[in-house]
Simulated scan of single mutants.
Amino acid sequence: MLILIVGLVIFFAVHSVRLFIPDWRKMAVTKAGLMTWRVRFGMLSLLSLGFIVMGYGQARLAPVWLWFPPVHMGHVTSLLMLVALFLLFASIVPKTMMKKVTGYPIYLAIKVWAFAHLLSNGNLADVLLFGSFLVWAIVSYAVFRRRDRKAGVKIEKASLRFDLIALTFSVASWFTIVLFLHEAVIGVAPFH
């Protein structure tokens, strides 16, 4: 469990600096250069993800159960993941209406992903992993939306056709994950 916690702490420390020091990235790039900043940020991100994956895998070998979710919650989680994937792709595809309306669909995607997985997983490692991501996404979304409103930031150009592209990618990804990847990588079939 300690490895999982260390990974989460590193991940959130690296990914939360802009919450508290908005110009940090610009200062770091000015001081060290763009490539150096990217390498450092990327290495810390990979290190934290490695710890998270390793720690979560170890914690699953000896789970500490807090509750036992009903079996049908796995189906609810799978359906919510379609929403999360749409929000994810809406943040990647440029000029989506979802991005114009919400500002940061990536944080909404993380919220839905984390909440969905909390519904169908009841051990301590799950609560640490998904609960911490849920709290982080809620805080990050609120901070960045407040900053944008204060600064008067608005996304002007957007088209529903880009949302349809995001939806297409999300449906294809969802089927791939549900039918193949989730069980192969995580060891759990979403529809069992």
Rank of each mutant, 00 (worst) to 15 (best):
R149N: 13
M43V: 15
V143D: 04
M27P: 00
P105T: 02
A184Y: 10
L179I: 06
F12I: 04
T102I: 09
I3N: 02
D23V: 02
V185Y: 12
L164A: 15
G187F: 11
H75Y: 14
P190C: 09
K157H: 11
H75N: 08
P94D: 03
A151G: 04
I138Y: 11
S132H: 08
D126I: 06
T30F: 04
N123S: 09
A125Q: 04
L88C: 03
L167R: 04
H72G: 01
F191W: 14
W67G: 08
V83E: 01
V6T: 15
L82T: 09
T77C: 14
R146H: 13
T30H: 11
F115M: 10
M97H: 09
V188C: 01
S170C: 04
I165T: 12
T96L: 06
S45L: 10
G33S: 07
D23T: 14
G152P: 08
L108D: 04
R18D: 07
I10S: 09
L82G: 13
W113H: 03
A166W: 08
A84V: 02
L164I: 12
L79E: 03
L8W: 07
W37L: 00
R60L: 14
L88P: 00
V83L: 14
I177S: 07
I5K: 11
T96W: 03
F175H: 10
S48D: 03
N121E: 06
I106M: 13
D126F: 04
A172W: 05
F144R: 11
W24N: 07
F162A: 13
S132G: 07
W24I: 06
G187A: 11
W65S: 13
V29Y: 01
A137D: 09
L181I: 15
Y104W: 10
F89H: 01
K31M: 09
S91H: 05
L118M: 10
L119A: 03
A62W: 03
L88I: 00
D23F: 00
K95A: 09
L108W: 13
K31Y: 10
T30W: 01
P105N: 04
Y56L: 11
K111S: 12
G50I: 05
W113F: 14
V188A: 03
L66W: 12
K31N: 08
V139M: 08
V171I: 15
V178C: 00
T168N: 00
A151S: 13
V71K: 13
A109Y: 00
